[in-house]
Each structure stands twice: as structure tokens, then as C-alpha cells.
Design a protein around this nucleic acid. Structure first.
Lengths: 190, 190, 190, 190
DNA sequence: AATGAATGAGATTTCATTCAT
DNA sequence: GATGAATGAAATCTCATTCAT
């Protein structure tokens, strides 16, 4: 792993542990096992690492979803698996996700967000399109729906895990609700 | 306006302008027109202002929704009006909303969030319950659905306004999509 | 003495001791007996103290000259006394003078220099004008001559003291030469 | 041009642009088009380049003077030509000249200055000696006078160009004054 | 001889917090 | 209660210097 990647991963770890505010550059470089000055060869400031972190997080999300969703299953099962995957990532990286969100929002890096998120939207979009073609979901589904579905699942996961990530019982109920909600929203034919 | 309120509103303005991270106590007191030391008579730290800000924002949201949603209209129209109201608040305070989210997330104040948000969830919950009673929406709707609806609308609004708050044309399309999505999700009988 | 003056005098002392390059803000604040942060309440950087130092140095020069030149003496003696005074200040503050010169030259503060130096030029100008009126020096002397005289004396003093400030014997010769040179240049009638 | 010369010229350029204080080794090597480490093969530090720069500047001055002063002209014309030449060099390199002065002054390299400057003093000295022999200037002129003449002309040129190097009109007046001043100082017989 | 990424000591700078007024 | 100059601990950031290639 090169130094830049080391910094990004160390920053993720540090931010998860103590939050952006309390993370010092020195925490990051210590975790990365590099010298203080080396940080500045790759990033001009702590916040400048954010877009790179966001990218990694989206990659993690896509990987989790791809990993969980099994091609041979029914649409409804795959939907459930996707929900599971997103809840899992949200649980494991809730601080980082919240921080990316605010970290990007408060900087000039925000424009990069759409680009970074695109691969995930694209994947979900294709997933829905296939279901539409198969007649499993309503025909009026269109491109923008993918983003709504992602937003819905992520925000519901955040509602659970933001408060206390030990609430797996509540998570189960919430996941069931989201699934039910989505079934209707997408007009799933069982 | 008393000094405490001045501080809260100055903090909102400062956080909107430069983000939590870059806002100094001195920025807040300058905007509030009070002395540096006076801040500490009301709040122990910068982040301690967050719950108060959150409260103000939830109040603003409830006010906007109540103001837009007209009792005499059909459910579908009222849903549309609610979407409009939430999009409007998100557009006007997108940074603050993101910051509350992350600002609370990164502190011990997070537990207060559920309490603060409760009045809004409650309002939407009642709104849905009435529709359910009237048979306008599907019967399987339950308490948790209110939060999903709120999360869906807010996240879709953020998707638009986080990037560029001038995109009113895109916002129109997104609002229509959310409405359509919700119609199905809630099983609206027209 | 207020804090700003303390900083200026501490900076002069520090610059004399170790030169600009090697003087740290911490050296200045230690000498001034104030806190590190207090420095920044008065000056944005080390170099920003320069114009204030220059002002003090010009004041010192004027004071030295006024102090040495005795009204009742002949013009030639007064000229000699002025040369003595300038040589003395140059000897005692050679590093500071050199540093002001370069310090101002390398910054945006240079425009202030003419203003700062004005009082001294003015004094010498009056001194020469009186001599001209009394017919002690040639009639073709004009306003600009004052600056030439100052430049001549200062540069000759610097030639001596810049190299090694222990060379008082060489200084004596140099002073005699300057006086002789000036006698002719000004067309002194003895 | 070999690497050492590249460094010297790059240093001159960098010092002119940003002053000694703010010039980093990295600025110099970038301008010189060489690697960071290469610098240290030729000079142990930033200030160690100073004597070499001084040498180059004195060479430039001598070259300018020799180039301008025409052997066949009268002494007074040659004096005028010398003033012109020195003003020109001062105008073009005012920052560097100031910096050499302070740069050398603040280091152990100062002792080299007299050696470096010697060729120029020597030239002016010879120039005056010839005039003395020809009886064009007063007989009491001696060796030290050369330095006074140089100092006078240089300081008067700096007075003009240090403030604003566009003031060619003021420079004309100043040059005329210096010439007049020197005529008397040297006791020129026309 | 030449390179330039990496270093880390040490500088600058910040800013939450205090406290005498 | 209100003030704001002063503080100084603790952060950020710089950059001369090294050294493996």
C-alpha cells in the first residue's frame, strides 16, 4: 500500500475513533506509520482527505452490496439482501458516513460527491431496470428512483445506528419496515 | 432577542458560512454582537450549541409544513405540500441540516436528537394515521412509516440541494418522483 | 510601556543579537515578557514589526544628532558633530540598520519608509538652509542635498562598521575624510 | 551554464522576487531546474550563496561602468557616465543589492565583502588618481575618497529606486544633484 | 554526480478559556 | 451579568536536510 492509501485508511480509522474535530494530523500520521511532514506531500489539510475517504466508503458499500446480493435469488430477496448490506455498512461506519456527509458539505469538495457516488447509483439503477424488464416491479419506475431507494434505505439505517449501534433488535424491525415500504413503492409482484 | 438566542442564531449563521470545523467561538460572538467571555455564560463549548440549533431547525421545519399543508385539501395534495415544505427548508438550510446531523453525531448530545425530532415525527404520524383511518392509504401502515417518509423526503431533497441549490428545475422533477414513489409506498387510493 | 512598545523593543534587541533569520517569535515574546499569542494581537508576523522598528531607529538617530550638535558651535563643528552622531548610531545598531534596509526592501512595507525617514531629512534640510542663509555654504545648495549628505555619511559609516565594529581607529580616519569631502561638496567658507 | 551558476542565478531571481527570508531552497532549485539534493553538492546553505551573488553583482556593476564611461570624454562627462551606470544597475537590481548588504551583514560571510568589492573600488580609485594627476580635481583627494564617491552615488540611487523604480523623472534630478555635489566635493576644474 | 521522496525538529499560529475590571 | 485583552497549551505547518536509488 502506498503512502497516500495509508493516509486515507489511517484517517478513516482515526475519524471513526474520535470524530473529525478531535482527530489531529498527528493521530493520522501515527496510525499511518509515516512522518508528520509526509502527510502534507499528499494532502493540504485534514479536510482534504474527505473526498478520498468518501470514495473508499462508496467502494465499501458497493462491495458489501455486491457481496450480499445473490444473483439466483428472487427480486424481493435480493432487495432484502441489499437492505441488509447497506444497514451493515451504516452500522460499521456510521461515524465516518456522517462525517463524510458533513465534511463534504462544509467544504469546496462537495461537487465531487456526485461523481464519487455515481457507481453505486448506477448499480442500483441497473438492478431496478432488470426487475422492470422482467415485469417484477411496476413499469413507471425510472432512472431517478434508484437514488430515492438508496436515500430511503440509508436514511432509515442512519435513524437506527446514529443513536446507538447496539440496537440490533430495532434494526430488524426497521429493515422489515423498509422492505415492506419498498415493496409497495416499487409495486413488487410476488 | 436575548443573548442566548443571539448566540444560537449567530452560530447557525456561522456554521452555514464556514462549517462547524472552521467556525471559531470568536466568529459566533462577533456575529452575535457580544463579548468573547459572554459566550461562556450560556454555553460551555461550540458543540453545546448544537442541540439548541437542532431545536430551532425542527421548529422551522414543523412551522413550514404546518404553514404549507392546507387541511381542506385531499391527502395527495397535502402530501405534495408537505414535500414542498421540506424541500424548501432543506434548500434554505442545507448546510445547517447536514451539520446538525454530523455535529450531533460526533458528540454526546446525540441522545437529545430523538427528543428534539419527536414533535415532527409525531405530526407526520398523526397525518398518516388520519389518512389510514379514512381509508385513503393502505391499512398496513404503522408508526415507523412516518420516519421512513420523513427520511425519504429529506434525503431526496438533500440529494438535490447539497450539490447546487440553484437547481430548481431538477428539484421539480425530484419532487414529482418522490410524490409518485410515496403514492405507491403508501398505497394511496385516488 | 504598553505591550506593542514592548514587542518593538524586544524585537530590536533580538534582531541585534541574532539577526532576523535566526530570531524566533518566541525569542521576541520572551524578551518582551508576554505570552506567545499576545504577539499576534499586535503584529501578524515577524516582518510586520519592521516599519515600527524603522521608526524607532530614525527617532534614535534624530535624538542622537540633536543631542550631539551644539547650537552655539560653528557650522563646521556642527557638521563634525552630526557625523559623529550618525557614526555612533550606526556602530551601535549596525545590524538593525542593515536589517531594516533589507527587511523593508523585501516587503510591502517599503512605501512607509519615506514617511518614516522624513523627520530626519527635514531636520538636516533646515540645518543646511540656515547655513546657506548665513552664507557659510555655497548658494547652490538645495532641498535634495540634505538627502545626499545623509546618504553619504550613513554609507561611509556602514563601510566601517559593517565589517567589524571594533575598528574605531579606521572610523576616525573615515570621519575625517567625510568631513573633508563634505566641506568641499558644500563649499564651506571657513 | 553549469549547475553552480544555475543556482547562483536562480537564487538572485528568487531573492529579488520574494526576499531572502521568504525564499526557500526549493524555490531556488525549482528555478534552477535541478533536484533538491543537488543544491547541497554546491552550497551548504541558502546564505552561503550570498558571496557568489555579491561577486556577480559587483561584476555587473564594473561591467556597466566600464561600458558606459568613454575614455575620450572629459572627466566631468565620465563622472556623469559613471553615475548613470550605477543608477542603472541599482534600478535593475535594487532588491538584490539591498539583500546582499543585509544578507552578508547577518552572516559570517561578511569578511569576504571587502575582497569582493575591491575590484570596483580599485577601478574608481584609479579613475580619480588619473584625474588628480591631470590636475582636473583637487590635490587633497586620497585613496579613501573612492569609497565615499561610490557610497554617495549608490545611496542616492537607492533613495530613488528603493521606493518606486518607475520614477525616472526623479532619477534625472537626483543624478544632476549628485553630479553637482561631486563636482564641488572633488573640486573639479572645468 | 544527480535525484527527490521522506523526514521530523522546530517554527508559526490558533483559539478556547480565563479573569481582572 | 458583561467585557475583551491576555494567555499558553496544543495544534498546524514548514522546510532544510538526508539518503537510498
Amino acid at each position: 500500500m502506498n503512502k497516500k492509501e495509508k493516509i486515507i485508511h489511517a484517517a478513516i480509522e482515526a475519524f471513526r475513533d474520535k470524530g473529525i474535530e478531535k482527530t489531529k494530523i498527528s493521530d493520522i500520521v501515527t496510525l499511518a506509520g509515516i512522518a508528520q511532514g509526509t502527510f502534507y506531500l499528499y494532502f493540504p489539510s485534514k479536510l482534504a482527505v474527505m473526498p478520498a475517504i468518501a470514495e473508499v466508503m462508496v467502494e465499501k458499500t458497493i462491495a458489501a452490496v455486491k457481496n450480499h446480493v445473490q444473483a439466483e435469488e428472487s427480486f424481493i430477496t435480493k432487495l432484502e439482501q441489499m437492505i441488509d448490506a447497506i444497514f451493515m455498512v451504516t452500522r460499521d461506519y456510521r461515524e465516518v458516513l456522517a462525517l463524510i456527509y458533513a465534511g463534504l458539505a462544509s467544504t469546496e469538495y462537495i461537487k465531487e460527491w456526485e461523481t464519487i457516488y455515481e457507481p453505486f447509483c448506477s448499480w442500483v439503477s441497473t438492478f431496478l431496470k432488470q426487475a422492470k424488464t422482467s415485469g417484477v416491479i411496476r413499469d413507471s419506475i425510472d432512472v431517478g428512483t434508484a437514488k430515492l431507494v438508496i436515500g430511503l434505505i440509508e436514511s432509515s439505517a442512519e435513524q437506527i445506528y446514529l443513536y446507538d449501534f447496539k440496537q440490533e433488535d430495532k434494526a430488524l424491525i426497521q429493515k422489515a419496515e423498509v422492505l415492506e415500504f419498498l415493496k409497495h413503492a416499487l409495486g413488487v409482484q410476488e
